[in-house]
Design a protein around this nucleic acid. Sequence first.
DNA 1: TGTACATCAGTGAACGCGCGTTCACTGATGTAC
DNA 2: TGTACATCAGTGAACGCGCGTTCACTGATGTAC
Lengths: 243, 243
Amino acid sequence: MPRKTHSSKAGRSHRDAYHHGDLRSALIEATEALLAERGLAGFSLREVARRSGVSPAAPAHHFGDAEGLLTAVATHAFEGLTGALEAGNARGGADPVARLREQGVGYVEFALRYPGRFGLMFRTGVAGVRKDAALEQAAQAAFAVLEDGVRALLAAPRPAPLSAAQWQALLAIWSIVHGFAHLAIAGQLDRAPPPGVGPQESGLRAVLAGLLEQQLRGLQRIAPSGARRAPGARRRAATSGSR
Amino acid sequence: MPRKTHSSKAGRSHRDAYHHGDLRSALIEATEALLAERGLAGFSLREVARRSGVSPAAPAHHFGDAEGLLTAVATHAFEGLTGALEAGNARGGADPVARLREQGVGYVEFALRYPGRFGLMFRTGVAGVRKDAALEQAAQAAFAVLEDGVRALLAAPRPAPLSAAQWQALLAIWSIVHGFAHLAIAGQLDRAPPPGVGPQESGLRAVLAGLLEQQLRGLQRIAPSGARRAPGARRRAATSGSR
DNA sequence: TGTACATCAGTGAACGCGCGTTCACTGATGTAC
DNA sequence: TGTACATCAGTGAACGCGCGTTCACTGATGTAC
């Protein structure tokens, strides 16, 4: 794509009136922006085409129909989430608690940065998004990163199946980041603001990190002995959360 | 409303061709059913009128416009959630852990039983639902029940403001039930089924109760000493979660 | 290096549809006397 | 107890609109020779 970097709106130059360059990506981006602005109920194929500076018939060449586009967006979103979780792992270094905590921060930051994608990802089958092998695989890949993080925390490597208590731990951490993300997007976390922390997003991030730290220390107690590290961190975790 | 109990579909008798009886409630119910089936993107005022056996202009007499209807549904939903949380409190008896655990179970059961309402409640402002004093008050009332449950658990009665750690505990429990509900509705919890428990809803409920029990025992540790009860329950909580 | 041609990617007009809302209306109910 | 009338609650036709999708088309690109 050497020719065209400016993903313009309607006013494309005469030079490239045809052959957009990377219309497929442009349509996906426009869809994400539209979903973030108006939600799934406000999505329309024509509006996406309009924002991409393209005729209403153009998207059909790449995605078949509206469902096809939304499914591609959801798949793309899961790939992005996988990347965010892996980046969190990297940020966390060697300590499994820190790795998983940063995965959680990455999860929520992804959801807040791309609420359009996030809202779509978990709506499979209900409306608009088609069940699709590529989509399911992308979703499974993201989940696997989280599961591996919990396995490392609990010293329960693959391929052994998780025990009931281990599965419960996985579910707890997933629920907490997923719920936090939803509540933050919905603006519900301003309902009872923390004493020391303002409603800014950076404060939110610190609260989340502290919350996860405490959560993970608790979960780690169900691991076989010897799996715990950084023993001095427990007291720190109990009082962190504000700045 | 002695005359008309059967909230019928299109075929109302000639007797009550006019004056539906309780059209306002019927429209709210039809909206909830439609949202559960198709999501907000599949909602339409005409379809709701059709399902209520009424002309497309009828809803305007009660709600003004489509947004008015959706706002009323969201308000009604928050009132229902408040009721579910209070019923959980009652089920839990005197033990603050049991009370809050049952609040959480009630929260998730409400979301699973009425996914249409639940999906709408936290979408305020984004699409369709109007910001409204009655709605905000209903939302605040539901939140207050949860906050009071956490205050009881942590022996932190009103009107003292919550400390950072206490606020963190409240946020953790809210996030966990909210996230669990969303994941369950999205069908994501089948992704990694628990070893002993099937994917039936009753199994889900048991998993959630176990998860919350462990969670709340952990949170309780930040309370001032003397607030803990049922001391023998801790070991039980650690191994519950299956069946 | 030049030409013929197949293929690709997007056009734009057209279709039929369901939508939210309006409007003048009308049937049923309730109240005043 | 009966009648006039105001009010309430719903009708149904009509409007203009934006939608998804189709269709024959055409301009640009790439390949074969």
